[in-house]
Design a protein around this nucleic acid. Sequence first.
DNA 1: GAGTTTGAAACT
DNA 2: CAGTTTCAAACTC
Length: 547
Amino acid sequence: MLQQEAASHSLVKVEPPNGAMDTSTPISQKFVAMTTPTTNMTVPEPMDQDVPVTISALQACQVQGVQQPVVPQTVTSQMFAGRAVSISSLQNPAAVLGLPPGNTQPVMIQQTSSTQPVQRRPMAQSIVPQGNKVIPSPSAPGNKPMYFTTTSSSNKLIAISGNSVPRFVQSIGNLPRFQIVPQPRISPQTTLRPIAPRMATGTSTVVRPQVTQIQLKPANTPRPGKQVLPNPSQQATGVVQQRVLLQTHPGSTQLRAIAPNLGNLPPGATIQLPPGTIIRDGVVYVPQQVQTAGATTSGVQLSTAVQISQTVSSTAEPVNGVPDPPSPTRQRKPCNCTKSQCLKLYCDCFANGEFCSNCNCNNCSNNIDHEKERSKAIRACLGRNPHAFHPKIGKGTGETERRHNKGCHCKRSGCLKNYCECYEAKILCTNICKCTGCKNFEESPERKTLMHLADAAEVRVQQQNAAKTKLESQMEDLPSRAPILAHAGEKLPFSFVTLDVVEATCRCLLVQASAAEKKNTSRTDIQKLVLEEFGNCLLKIIHAANN
DNA sequence: GAGTTTGAAACT
DNA sequence: CAGTTTCAAACTC
């Protein structure tokens, strides 16, 4: 599994935000950058110990406008290109790695903490196929292509000469800045084989846990969105679906899609994942680009999931790898969980198979930083209820298009408040429901009244919005308008009551008042005179306007 | 915004 | 499976 990560991604080590590093990874494993392929690749069988290092504490991060699926990580400092580079956040690791501008491939970051000197030594040839081609950036000395890899034993970056001939081992500190290019040796097949939860020995192991989450677009993904879409209206709003859950059964070869509705995958199915896919702790991350290309499977349409996602997110697909700005139609409802750590089905995000994002929750573990707990929680939920992540609203039989799969159990709400899951989903209660005093049936007068009220309210809102839009439009047009004639052909006031006219009118009124004051005219008479003068002014203005 | 009500989920 | 508790959302004031 980790080989896949190493083989398919640029890697640099990162310290998780909470500081909980995976201690299984040697700290001197400094590095680093591995191939981000442009072609599919085959996940190799486990090889000898000189395969790419075990990478831990991997965190997806953002590269030049690529949507970041997790919170920004904090990297302490790392030795790079012979100097210490302090990075407070990884907003732009591409700059550090020398990735070409506009790169949209995912980059994984690993923390580097060791500065121990590196000895040059010959490298075993067997490592080469696992190596990753690196060429120095134009500014770097020696523009020869280089291959590099790391080993689990030495924990050092190993650089190889350009023609793949192993040559020496080099510390990252001695490497020039480099850019990452595809590893041409990697063949275009990645397979998922369902296996028992515990790592099988000597086999290709891709899906280790029982539950595997396919996240469809971390590479240049938009924000996480709805995963389970129980009704078409939600799809119509452009809600984004990103992940599906796949389940493997111990001792079985069945790989089953749990959510959303992918149906059962045939036993023994192998799933071809697209290039750029990584798998970590049972989570499979598929880059966004793949969706447009349409991943295929050997015998199984994992691409179904991809296509589903694409269909759903079609209104909000990022362009050129740049994430879209937040869209109101795509924003899911943030949760407010306080006690569940967002790892129970109380949490809507978790229940929908989503990571929490922009939520108001406390002590949240529903994120990539707590993937182990999260996976455990998912398994626990599935243990209690194998259908826990199935959509609650399914397709009904006959004339009922949709219905609640489990039915509600309301007692006090009459199933006419949003407490009721049926009512909330805008569907009628069915005979599956065990509700008391249900009023959510076709002929219910209470329901009809409520519907009418709701319709009326909706119409009012629409009318208000339309009026508001129209007014705003008129206001925008107002300053730029030339004198406009009304229907009858006369000029409209704003075309002739100019600032000059107003000033002149005021001056006339002041003169009139001042003259009256000098004559010791009473206050009341002054007001009359001013009003008369104002009338005269208006007549003059009207007269002028009509000429 | 605080407090109450509600029903699903979790637990026993 | 039934009863109870926990939880977060919906709702009310």
